[in-house]
Nucleic acid binder design. Sequence first.
DNA 1: TCTGGGGTCCTGCCGCAC
DNA 2: TCTGGTGCGGCAGGACCC
Length: 356
Amino acid sequence: MKIVSIFPMKPLIVHVDMDCFFAACEMKRNPQFRQKPLVIGASRDAPRGVVSTANYVARKYGVHSAMPISQAVRLCPNGIFLKTDIDFYRSESQKIMEVLHSFQVRCLQASIDEMYLDFSGHDGDWVELGRLIRKKVYDETGYTCSVGIATSMRVAKIASGYTKPHGVTVVYNQRNFLSPLPISNIQGIGKKSIPSYHTANVYTIGDLAQMHQFSVLEKFGSHALTYWHIARGEDESVFDDPQPEKSYSREVTFPYDLYSLDDVLFALKDMSVEAVSDLADTFCKTVTLKIRYSDFKTITRSKTFVVPTNSQDFIAQRVSELLQTIDTTKGIRLAGIRLGNFVDVQGQKQLDSYVV
DNA sequence: TCTGGGGTCCTGCCGCAC
DNA sequence: TCTGGTGCGGCAGGACCC
């Protein structure tokens, strides 16, 4: 006889976050970089670019992600600056994910260097579990990671960042753990919205938790209610199955601003061909043109088709038409296209044949 | 001071259909 | 025939994340 528990299985989510992953990949490939400040993003003489990641030696100089390369060079003139080699990092990521899959629990890859594992129902010592995962990843790949363990995905992620690098953080009480942390620890509250929280005297997650629900709604809007529930330890973000991709894009920042429509169109045609060929048999209904002017103002123009397509010529033609509506005299620093609104053409065909 | 590339999600506005 | 409410999709922009 099968015995079914009347109690719901206690969720247990593990978040694994690799430590300064791109830099770690380069240090593995070139061990002589380990003791030197290493910055990944662009070469030191690149006219434009930002820091993608930096190793901990470089971080001591004040270098951090999203910082302009030119500024990083000033802060760390003796640093080693490398272009991003995303194909290499993807192949290394694949090896790490294989190690994590070997635990034979449900896994969800959140990004190139992050993975969630669903250990719900696990009875053992949570701290030991974290240490085991960390050790196995290091022993089998040579990479260090940080591990966060909690009863929800969002809190597990916050926990993994709590004792970086190479730490294990276990959260037994969500509210007590989150309370003293800065409000910026909540995913979704970034540098634009932080000032509005500070204006309302909300500096820590605990400050947010103590607010009245209606006050949160009034001051920060409806989406902030989700953050309020997290702050109160009421987050129950469940383990989601992977969602299909919703869009695919290609964009490029030109080394120097372009003023000629033909030059921009030339670059966009290349991107259209690449994007459509990458998508292979996937059909899209919407194409969006993205333009960033020299003053960093960014605009988008999109077109939705009646019939989904994966025709390179058709999409390139629509991109060209959208570009005709753009003023290029101001100087264009970035151009890109995005394909979205994907349609399951295979499914449609099956449905049609059934109806017929 | 200078700000990449590739994504997701949210919001507001507008036009259209009912 | 006209008008207002409502819902929805398209569109544009913005914020955020890694």
